[in-house]
């Protein structure tokens, strides 16, 4: 394995280890997201057909907003001295971006998998004929959100308003991801092809990957 990938995997492993110890994502963000799924029906008339219609929008909204919280979690943020130490140790900034994205991606997949049964249970949407077809869309959606969250987190590192500012920067740019994933689900439900929407997700992910790689070095200068 090349030095680059060893570094990237080390960063991802370190992030997940810290997350496992602190439990910020699993212990706080995940239950908060589940609570959001639970609260929405209480604010409606409770009609079964309305809830079935709301199932998918609520799912995408909660995964977007709480996914951002996961990607921007405090446990994946180094202090300035830590960052400087990593630079002195020769950590490639691009490997740092890739590693951080990987750890956020794992957590986002976890969030998605936990929320699906909750939404099905509380909202009882129309069953999807071939749910397995949604897996690539879900994975690409989570990957895009992870990259966007990492980028927004790096752009706002150290700012007092980071908690509000980073999601504000990321949310409008996440729209192609939400469109690609949600339209894939609609197309599968109608028995139509999802190639166009998968391509949209792939193109957005590629654009974010290029942005992440190109900006990794200047962003590192900002943070140190």
């Amino acid at each position: 394995m090349s030095r680059f990938w060893r570094q990237a995997l080390q960063v991802a492993k370190r992030d997940l280890l810290v997350e496992g110890r602190a439990g910020e994502g699993v212990g706080i963000v995940l239950p908060f997201g589940a609570l959001a799924v639970f609260v929405v029906p209480l604010a409606t008339s409770g009609s079964a057909s309305l809830l079935a219609d709301l199932a998918a929008p609520v799912y995408w909204l909660v995964t977007l907003l709480f996914g951002m919280q996961l990607a921007l979690r405090q446990t994946a943020t180094e202090t300035v001295p830590q960052r400087r130490l990593l630079v002195l140790l020769g950590l490639d900034p691009v490997a740092r971006f890739v590693g951080r994205t990987l750890s956020a991606w794992v957590l986002l997949i976890g969030l998605q998998l936990v929320l699906i049964p909750l939404v099905v249970l509380f909202y009882e949407p129309e069953p999807v004929p071939t749910p397995a077809l949604m897996l690539p869309a879900l994975a690409l959606y989570a990957l895009g959100l992870a990259m966007l969250g990492t980028l927004a987190g790096d752009l706002t590192v150290g700012l007092r308003t980071r908690t509000a500012l980073a999601p504000m920067l990321a949310a409008p740019l996440a729209v192609p991801l939400v469109m690609g994933a949600s339209q894939s689900l609609i197309s599968i439900s109608r028995g139509e092809g999802i190639l166009t929407w998968t391509l949209l997700l792939v193109a957005t992910d590629l654009a974010l990957a290029v942005a992440g790689v190109v900006t990794a070095r200047p962003l590192e200068e900002t943070a140190t």
Binding site: L155, T156, L159, R160, T161, L165, M168, L169, A171, P172, L173, V175
Partner: peptide
């Protein structure tokens, strides 16, 4: 969306 992205740009500058 473009409007919101650039509002974010201005917010980042202010912050």
């Amino acid at each position: 969306l473009m409007f919101f992205v650039y509002l974010g740009y201005l917010a980042l500058r202010r912050a």
